[in-house]
């Protein structure tokens, strides 16, 4: 069962997990260049998966009042307002000369449309569980609650999860989380995340978020085909002058062996709250065990020495 690339490197995750003849790996290609920030994905996901609300708090982060992917938000639309960098730093910090309330004279340091305002951008991106080829959450799960499906996706079995919480710090993207509230909700204390609508996939349906997305920003399909589509899209955008366009998570040789849910971004990943170069922690696990064995040996040896010295 353990192959050369079972912990790191390109692999068919379903086959590696022991499925003899799995169906094509399924995933998402989220093209943020046509995301309109409508959040239909967030709502459709919650409706289908009976995910509870996450509280009614205004965050003041542009139009994002969800904040992050978490136990109660399996899709999260990020809103990034990128203010224009002023061409000259503001120098006059004194009170502007107001000749008339609300109407300043021409000398005021107020940015006005058409002046000093290069390319303000409002980026929107719908984030989701990456369904990594090498999923740390799944690797570290001690109960087998997290498992690899025949579609190559990673799913929590609510009735097996014991709420140990180990998957939470293991995820390099900060996706999975233990549900803490609301108290009356189901699965409180249980790790929760996107299932890529496992129940819908089984019935030959499209995941709820992709179904609800009005602009095809969220595309669902076979990962191989989506990767090809993504490659063409990014090439087309770059040819059209959108030089910021890049793919994120589409490379099977990257730190997680390629994500099942990958993205076309218009800026660096960290701008959207994504890690720029994530690595599955279990890549280093053999080395960790090795060090631990040596340390354990040292303890044993040390104990022996503690007694030997006396006798000698």
């Amino acid at each position: 069962m353990i192959g050369k690339t079972s912990l790191f490197g390109p692999v068919n995750p379903a086959r590696d997990a022991g499925y003899d003849d799995p169906p094509a790996r399924k995933g998402f290609f989220t093209d943020t260049s046509i995301c309109i920030g409508c959040k239909a994905c967030e709502v459709a996901c919650k409706e289908w998966n009976e995910v509870p609300d996450n509280g009614f708090d205004m965050l003041g982060m542009s139009y994002d009042n969800t904040g992050s992917l978490n136990a109660n938000s399996w899709r999260h639309v990020a809103f990034v307002e990128q203010p224009a960098r002023p061409t000259a730093p503001p120098v006059d910090l004194g009170m502007p000369t107001l000749l008339h309330d609300g109407v300043a004279d021409d000398g005021q340091q107020t940015t006005v449309a058409g002046e000093d305002r290069p390319d303000f951008r409002w980026l929107m991106s719908s984030d989701v569980c990456k369904h990594c080829t090498h999923a740390a959450c799944l690797d570290v799960c001690p109960t087998g609650s997290l498992f690899r499906t025949e579609f190559g996706t990673v799913v929590v079995q609510d009735d097996i999860c014991n709420g140990c919480g180990y998957c939470v710090p293991a995820c390099p993207y900060g996706v999975i989380e233990r549900r803490e509230r609301p108290e009356a909700a189901k699965n409180v204390g249980i790790a929760q995340k996107c299932t890529l609508c496992y129940d819908r996939l089984g019935a030959g349906m499209t995941p709820a978020c992709a179904q609800a997305c009005p602009t095809q920003s969220i595309q669902f399909g076979d990962v191989d085909e989506l990767r090809e589509r993504a490659k063409q899209r990014v090439e087309a955008l770059q040819a059209g002058g959108v030089t910021d366009a890049r793919l994120y998570g589409a490379d099977p040789e990257d730190g997680v062996g390629g994500a099942g849910a990958f993205f076309l971004l218009l800026d660096e990943p960290e701008v959207y709250g994504l890690p720029p170069d994530p690595v599955v922690t279990t890549r280093d696990l053999p080395h960790m065990y090795q060090r631990a064995v040596v340390a354990a040996g040292a303890l044993l040896l040390g104990a022996v020495l503690s007694f030997l010295e006396r006798r000698s």
């Binding site: 180990y166 293991a170 994530p278 280093d284 631990a292 303890l299």
Partner: peptide, 22 residues
């Protein structure tokens, strides 16, 4: 069997994406 009990907890912490543990 005791030394592994003392050592494995380090692996437990390190095998995460928590920067200062990993």
């Amino acid at each position: 069997t005791a030394p592994p009990v003392a050592a494995y907890t380090a692996v437990l912490l390190s095998d995460t994406a928590t920067p200062s543990w990993h």
